[in-house]
C-alpha cells in the first residue's frame, strides 16, 4: 500500500492537471469573492461578513474534482499503467484505496487553497470572522468531509469507466445535475411555505376577488419530506450547496455521519466492483 501511495503521490506532484485545478479553483473563488462583495456591498449597500462566503469554493470544487479525478485515474487506463500494478501482484483493493487517498488529498488541497484565497483576500477587505473558531472549525471539517464524499463518488465512476473522456463527461454532467438541478430543487421543495397566504386582486371592472389562505399542494409532508430532507442532507453536492449559500445548514450535525456512510458504502462497492472487473 505504501508503495502504491508513494507512486501515486509522485505522479500527483508532477501532474499539470493538479496545479491547473488549484489555479482554477483559486481563480473562481477570487472572482466569486470580488463579484459577491461588489454586488452586495457596493450595489445593495449590504454589509456581509466573510463567514458567509467562506465556503464559496464548494460551488466550484465539484467540477474541479470531476475533471481531475476522472483524468488522474483515466490516465492509468489509457496509458495502461493500471495493468503494471496488477501484473506485479498488487491487490486491487489496495490500488483502489491508494487512488482514493491520492485524489482525496488533491480535492481537499484544492479546497484548502480556495478557502485560503478567501481568507487572504477577504479579511483585509471585509474584516475578520464574526463566528467564533469553535463553530467555524467544525463547519470547515464537515465541509471537507463532504468534498471527500463527492470524490468517493467520482472515483467510483473513474475506476469503473476505462475511457478517460467518457468518464470525464459523465462525471461533469453528474456534478452539474446534482449541483445545479437536484440541490436547488430539493432546497425549493423543502423551503416551500406550507400555506399559500390569502391573496386579493381587483379585476378590470373594479371587483375585488379574494383567494383565501390555503395549504400549498407542493409542500412536501410525511415520508416524502423525510426522504427529500435525507437526500438534501446526505448528497455531498447538496451539503456543499448548503455551505455555499450564506447560511449554516440546519442539519449540519448530521452531515459528518452521512458523509462517512456515503464514503464507506461507495468505496466498498467501488473496490468490490473493481476487483471483479476484467482489465484489458
Amino acid at each position: 500500500m505504501v508503495k502504491l501511495l508513494r507512486s501515486d503521490f509522485r505522479r500527483l506532484w508532477r501532474s499539470k492537471l493538479f496545479y491547473l485545478g488549484i489555479t482554477a479553483v483559486a481563480a473562481s473563488v477570487a472572482f466569486g469573492l470580488i463579484n459577491n462583495v461588489h454586488y452586495k456591498r457596493i450595489m445593495l449597500n449590504l454589509e456581509i461578513p466573510i463567514d458567509n462566503i467562506l465556503f464559496l469554493g464548494t460551488l466550484v470544487i465539484g467540477f474541479a474534482i470531476a475533471i481531475f479525478t476522472s483524468f488522474f485515474v483515466g490516465t492509468e487506463y489509457s496509458d495502461g499503467t493500471m495493468r503494471s500494478k496488477v501484473v506485479v501482484g498488487h491487490n486491487r483493493s489496495m490500488i483502489y484505496l491508494s487512488h482514493f487517498l491520492t485524489t482525496t488529498f488533491a480535492a481537499v488541497f484544492m479546497m484548502v487553497i480556495g478557502t485560503a484565497v478567501i481568507v487572504v483576500v477577504g479579511i483585509p477587505w471585509m474584516g475578520s470572522f464574526v463566528t467564533s473558531c469553535t463553530i467555524l472549525l467544525p463547519q470547515i471539517l464537515c465541509c471537507l468531509l463532504s468534498i471527500v464524499a463527492l470524490n468517493a463518488m467520482i472515483l467510483l465512476l473513474a475506476m469503473l469507466i476505462p475511457s478517460k473522456a467518457i468518464c470525464a463527461i459523465v462525471c461533469l454532467v453528474l456534478v452539474m445535475v446534482m449541483t445545479n438541478m437536484i440541490s436547488p430543487t430539493l432546497w425549493s421543495k423543502l423551503e416551500a411555505d406550507p400555506i399559500i397566504p390569502e391573496m386579493s386582486y381587483t379585476d378590470s371592472e373594479g371587483v375585488v376577488h379574494t383567494q383565501p389562505e390555503q395549504p400549498n399542494p407542493h409542500y412536501a409532508t410525511g415520508t416524502t419530506r423525510t426522504i427529500l430532507q435525507l437526500c438534501y442532507d446526505m448528497l455531498p453536492t447538496a451539503q456543499m450547496y448548503q455551505y455555499g449559500y450564506d447560511k449554516i445548514p440546519k442539519n449540519i450535525h448530521l452531515f459528518p455521519l452521512y458523509s462517512v456512510l456515503f464514503i464507506g458504502v461507495l468505496s466498498t462497492v467501488g473496490a468490490c466492483a473493481f476487483r471483479r472487473r476484467d482489465l484489458k
Binding site: R11, D79, G80, T81, R83, V88
Partner: peptide, 10 residues
C-alpha cells in the same frame, strides 16, 4: 514483468 498489447507507460 509484462507488456500486454500496448506498452504500459505514462
Amino acid at each position: 514483468g509484462a507488456v500486454v498489447e500496448t506498452p504500459s507507460i505514462y
